[in-house]
Nucleic acid binder design. Structure first.
Lengths: 215, 215
DNA sequence: TCGCCAAAAATTGTCGACAATGATGTCGAC
DNA sequence: GTCGACATCATTGTCGACAATTTTTGGCGA
């Protein structure tokens, strides 16, 4: 749904600024002067200010008292730290999901796995990336752990850029596909421990890949 | 209202409101009308509004569009969910800490463990609760995982109330003390896996205790 | 030429007032 | 007597202006 398609002008100013940052309209480290954003988004400073506070708590904007806001540049090191936390929290979700998964959801995940295999075989990188996203989302939803879900949404928003770069790395899908399939297998086997381990293995592999890009 | 403790008047309004909520001056579910907070904290609505946005993202205030803010009542179920996430994230911190801990920090934790034993033996519940807090903080700091630390600070702030009630439960220190000592042992042995398991065992026990209070 | 101090500019923080929105209470019709 | 539409009210959302703070610039002297 969030596919780069015709964005339907999100009503809130915060959403629009976030979209602009994530789309790369504002470069990391760039200063976000309130007055500039005012005329850029047709709003007043009070509104802009509130939006900036929101985005600060989402971790994509950095605000220093009396010195203004800027787009937060997430270093490789921080991207790794984010993924480490994702690893354990998503592991928790997977364990929960394995306990709660229904037959319908099992069928759904199996189908998802098949489509991921197809995408890799035919080399449709973007489709695979999309399905990857969907899988992680479904695990989160099936796990039905609202607090964990909230944390994950927050963390995911922070390193979309690094995640994107990683997805485009040649050979990466071939590595991650079997990991994803293993996750699906464990979930469908209703094994909480197995699912948690599989998720952690997968994200540990993502961390290793991130480390490689650093060097 | 603010008489409760020797609070050194935190400069920021957000901090003062948070302190007031955590101190129980505002009951869970109570409406937080901006105008009221204005004269109560001697600030204007713009400032109050910014503070409420902050607190909303910290999870201790609930805000509905055009309908105002209220103190968020965390149910036992949500407290359990929060503790589940804390369990895995703090487990990550502990694993990291076990890899990075210095000799000086080992000595510090050992001393902390001894003081916890003393507090339990002499029945000083409040002291023990304080030391408990300190131990978790130290693990978080030694782990040096900024993202995890940020998540933990956020989560901790949410269920101080439940944590407090739990600490006062008779017999609870006797249960948690050996768990804490086990965590210290594993950290001092520089065993990442052991430390993570010990932390998770401990917080799993906290979750069990929370479940008991629910019934 | 370099370092330092002061004035100026730029930017954020705060304020009070107005507009918009959802909730509450009242009145009339059936 | 109850239901629904309408007026009223309380509260939030937004705006433009002023005050405080930080950064930059210009000037002065060693």
């Amino acid at each position: 749904m969030s596919a780069s398609s015709p964005d339907t002008e999100p009503a809130g100013v915060a959403e629009r600024i976030r979209a602009a940052i994530l789309a790369g309209d504002f470069a990391p480290g760039q200063r976000l002067v309130e007055a500039e954003l005012c005329e850029l988004f047709h709003a007043t400073r009070g509104t802009i200010r509130a939006a900036l506070i929101d985005l600060t708590h989402e971790g994509i904007v950095e605000r220093i008292a009396n010195r203004g806001a800027r787009v937060r540049a997430v270093s490789i090191e921080e991207a790794i730290a984010i993924t480490e936390v994702r690893m354990v929290v998503e592991g928790l979700c997977a364990a929960k999901a394995a306990e709660r998964i229904t037959e319908a959801e099992i069928a759904e995940l199996r189908d998802l796995g098949r489509r991921m295999q197809d995408a890799v075989r035919t080399g449709e990188v973007m489709t695979y990336s999309q399905l990857n996203h969907t899988l992680h989302d479904r695990i989160r939803d099936i796990g039905a752990q609202p607090v964990a879900a909230e944390v994950l949404v927050n963390l995911r928003a922070r390193n979309v850029r690094h995640a994107f770069k990683l997805a485009l790395r040649p050979g990466r899908p071939q590595v991650s596909l079997p990991e994803h399939l293993a996750i699906i297998d464990e979930l469908c086997a209703r094994s909480p421990d197995g699912a948690e381990r599989a998720v952690r293995r997968h994200l540990a592999s993502v961390i290793t890949a991130l480390r490689d890009t650093a060097g």
